[in-house]
Amino acid sequence: MSVAKPYPTRKRNNNRPVFDPDRLFAEDERASQDTFLDRLRARVRACTLLSWAAAGIVGQGSSLLMPGKMYRRFPLFFWSVANRILHIKVRTIGERAGSLTPRADGRRVIYVANHCSWLDVLVLGQVLPAFFIAKQEVRHWPVIGYLTFLGRTIYINRNRQESGQDVQEIIEQLRKGYDIAFFPEGTTSKGNGMLPFMSSLFAIAKPVRRRNDTTPDDHPSCIIQPVTVAYDRLEGLPVGRHRRSFVFSWFGDMDFGPHLMQLGKWRSMRATVLYHPPIKPEDYPSRKALSNAARAIIEQGSEDLRQNRLREDATSPDHTLS
């Protein structure tokens, strides 16, 4: 490992090195293990995950024919098993605002979360009883497309001309009593920071009414619950910037297959889901203000998790899904 070189400064006779951990790693180093057992472990996990996805197609289809809420319970079970296959332990902190049963106040819950990897769907899919929103392209991705489809994902088009129709479709699901979850960043990030939020989808919580619109307002009453997802343990050790970016995060032009194989080489991982107190859309003057407020809350939670500011005894189990 080479010694970090000093940064150039304007001051004379000052050559103290400035330590930057990221400079000690090359961008193409994926911070992975590469022994025979590691490669074998990755292959076994990848094959098991693909087999479980195939079984999930049958399971989800069968649950649609069963009475009750089985078709909503099965995705939670499916993602839970998928995380066990990859040896990802999911820790939750705080209280989730919604469940499979309606809230006492009758409000629907819209979960908004940060997004850095395809793993976010697995992790949140295990703990959020909600329908996810994803861009239309995801439906046609190999493996991931099937996985998101099993989770009852609502696919939307990025075309602005069709965005209004997509919003109405999502609102219709809210009217039926379903909760919704989506990633306002619109795409994955490197994991050490957050991208700007797109406020357009916040229209499902705060629709814009025209001045001359005299039709009754039948929009379902909603609350927004910000959710922070952080991958904070790798084989029992805290995760630094480099491993957060090149072990867990999936961004840019990364291919899914190699990323899955590299991820499968590690023996154990942990993801933490932090539930923040819900906020009410009516407390904000616009969708942009609502979007900015949710982003600030999630960003602060991400920083707190990275800096390990939250106590272990703050962990609370999920609500019983009834």
Rank of each mutant, 00 (worst) to 15 (best):
P142W: 00
D120S: 04
F149Q: 09
A134C: 09
L150G: 08
D120L: 02
I110E: 01
E137M: 09
A113D: 04
F131A: 02
V121G: 04
A113K: 04
L128D: 06
W118Q: 00
R152V: 03
G125M: 08
V143P: 00
F149D: 07
L119V: 06
A130V: 12
A134R: 11
H115G: 09
L122K: 01
L124F: 05
E137F: 07
Y146P: 03
V121K: 01
W141R: 10
P129V: 10
A130W: 05
H115F: 11
T148H: 04
Q136H: 15
H115V: 10
R152M: 02
G151D: 08
H140L: 05
C116D: 05
W118N: 00
L147M: 12
I110K: 08
L124P: 01
Q136P: 06
H140G: 00
V138P: 06
T148E: 01
C116M: 11
H140R: 13
L150S: 06
V127D: 03
V123S: 10
V127F: 09
Q136N: 12
I110Y: 07
I144K: 02
I133G: 11
P142L: 02
Y146W: 14
E137W: 09
K135N: 14
C116W: 01
Q126P: 01
I133V: 15
E137K: 08
V123L: 10
V109D: 07
Q136C: 05
L150Y: 03
I133F: 14
N114M: 04
L150T: 05
K135S: 13
I133A: 13
V123H: 06
I133T: 14
Q136K: 14
Q136T: 09
R139V: 13
L150M: 11
W141L: 12
C116A: 12
I110G: 09
I110C: 13
A113T: 14
R152S: 08
G125C: 10
W118K: 00
R139H: 10
R139M: 14
G145W: 03
L124M: 11
G151A: 15
G145L: 05
A134M: 15
L128F: 15
I144N: 03
A113I: 09
I133H: 11
W141I: 07
H140V: 10
G151E: 03
Q136G: 00
V143M: 12
Q136W: 15
F149H: 08
D120R: 04
I133Q: 07
E137D: 13
L150C: 09
Y111Q: 04
I144P: 02
G145V: 07
Y111M: 05
Q136E: 14
R152K: 12
L119C: 02
D120P: 06
S117N: 04
K135E: 13
Q126C: 08
G151N: 15
